[in-house]
Nucleic acid binder design. Structure first.
Lengths: 233, 233
DNA sequence: CGGCGTGTTGATGTATGTCAAGCGGAGTGG
DNA sequence: CCACTCCGCTTGACATACATCAACACGCCG
C-alpha cells in the first residue's frame, strides 16, 4: 500500500460520513490523534497482507474490501466482505502482525488510524478484563469461520478436534486427551454435517491412526497429520 | 432455571478459579456488585431460552453449555459450545431478550452477573463508539455462523443475498436493489461452495422468480420465499 | 434381563464438486 | 467501427462425497 501520509486529507469535517463514522468518533474522543487520513485504493490493491507489521487500522469510507487468509498450500479462504463504516485490521490486535489480508474489490477509500493511539486510549479507558472479553470473541469468530467454510467433512472434523483440544488446553488439560461433552448429533449440527457422517469420519480418522477414540473420550495421536487435514478445504 | 438467589455463594475467594475468572475481575473493578452467585445446572437444564428477558449474564465455572437457536420449523441450530470462563448471554446486549438458548451438556455451574450493573459500568467507562464496534462484531459473528452451517447451497445463497441486502440497507440503499461487489468465485469461496454451484443456484433462484440478476446487479423480488429458503438448513 | 439412548455401519439416492466447452461483455488495437 | 482477446460467468456431463433410511451394536439404568 502506498504511503498514506502522501495523500492529503481535509479531515473528517469534509468527509461524506462526517460524524457518523466510527473513526471520527475516535477522533472526537481523542482529538490529539493527528494522522488520520483518507486514502484511495484501486481494484485489487491490497490494504494489508498477512504478516505485515500491524501498526494501522483502517476504516472503510467507500467501496468494498475482501478479507482473506491463505493456507500453506497457497489457496485462499475468504473470511469476510467488509463495507463502508467497517473497521478492518483489528483481528491481530494482540499480535503485532496482521493475521489476514485485505484487498479492494472496487475502487475504495479508507481512513488510516494509528493502532498505537487506539491502544493507548483502550488501555487508559477500558479495563483489561473487558478487553479480554472482546478479544476472545474476535478470536472465536475467526475460529468458527475456519471450521465452517471447509468443504470436506474430514477437514471440518479435524479442525473441530484441534479446536476443541486447544480450548481444552487453555483450560489446563493436556491438549491431547480430552472428553467431548456433546453428542455426535450436536457436533454434526454445529459443523453442518449429518451425525452419521461425523461418526464415519471419526472412525476413518482412527483407522488412519491420527486419533484414538472411546465413546466421547478422545486422544490425539498424530497432530501433524490432523492439522494438515484441517487445512484442506 | 431455578432462582439463583436460593443458591448460596461463598464469593469468589472460595472459587477454584479465584481471581482468574473474568467475572471476578468485574467484581474487583466494581466491588459494589452484590448478586454474584454460583449456581448448579444438571444435564439438559436450560440456562436461558431465546426470548426470555435478558437481565443476567452467566460466567461458566465448570461443565459445558450448548448455545443454539431454533428456526420457525422448530429445528435446532447449534451456534457454539461454551466452556469454563466463557461469558454467555451477551449476544442480546442491545435488545432486552436473549437471542439464543443455552442448555447444559454436563452437570455445570455458572455464576450470574446482573446485566444492569455491567451496563452501568460499560456506560461509565467505555465510549459509545467503542461499544458499537464490539457489538457490531458480535452480530457479524452470529450472521456468519448462520450463513455457513447450512447444508444446502440454496439456503446458503439465499441467506447470503438477504444478508448482503441488509448490509446494503444499513448503508442507505433500498434493500431490494444492490450490486454484488465480489465475483462468483469469491462468493463460493466464502460460502464453501464451488463457483459453478453459486452460478447454478443463482439462475435457479431467478427461475423461481425470487430474484432478478443481471451480471452483479441484484434485485430481490420475493423476500418471503427467499427468507424461507434461507431458513432451511 | 429388557428397554432406551447413543453411536456405528451398510445400502442407496442426491446434491454438489470437477472438468470442460461455450457464451458475452469489456477492453484493446487495427 | 470492427475484429480480437480476455475474463468472468454459464451450462452440460460425469464423478463423488455426503445425506438419508434402516438395521444393529453397545453401554447404561431400571
Amino acid at each position: 500500500m502506498k504511503d498514506y501520509k502522501q495523500e492529503g486529507s481535509k479531515g473528517c469535517e469534509h468527509c461524506i460520513w462526517n460524524n457518523s463514522c466510527i473513526g471520527s468518533k475516535l477522533l472526537e474522543y481523542a482529538p490529539y490523534i493527528k494522522i488520520f487520513q483518507s486514502h484511495m485504493l484501486s481494484v485489487n490493491e491490497h490494504v494489508f497482507n498477512t504478516g505485515d507489521i500491524l501498526s494501522t487500522l483502517y476504516v472503510i469510507k467507500s467501496g468494498a474490501i475482501k478479507i482473506y487468509v491463505t493456507n500453506d498450500s497457497g489457496d485462499e479462504q475468504v473470511l469476510n466482505f467488509s463495507l463502508p463504516n467497517d473497521v478492518i485490521g483489528l483481528e491481530g490486535y494482540d499480535s503485532d502482525q496482521y493475521v489476514s489480508s485485505a484487498i479492494a474489490l472496487h475502487t475504495s477509500s479508507v481512513c488510516a488510524i494509528p493502532l498505537a493511539e487506539v491502544k493507548k486510549i483502550l488501555n487508559e479507558v477500558v479495563p483489561e478484563w473487558l478487553l479480554k472479553l472482546a478479544l476472545d470473541n474476535f478470536k472465536r469468530h475467526g475460529r468458527n469461520i475456519s471450521l465452517l467454510n471447509k468443504k470436506k467433512a474430514k477437514s471440518r472434523i479435524a479442525a473441530f478436534l484441534i479446536d476443541t483440544a486447544d480450548n481444552c488446553k487453555s483450560l489446563g488439560c493436556s491438549g491431547k486427551d480430552f472428553e467431548l461433552s456433546m453428542s455426535r448429533d450436536d457436533i454434526g449440527n454445529y459443523l453442518g454435517l449429518a451425525s452419521e457422517t461425523v461418526s464415519r469420519t471419526l472412525t476413518q480418522l482412527q483407522q488412519e491412526g491420527w486419533v484414538k477414540m472411546e465413546r466421547r473420550q478422545v486422544t490425539i495421536v498424530d497432530i501433524p497429520h490432523l492439522s494438515e487435514a484441517a487445512q484442506h478445504r
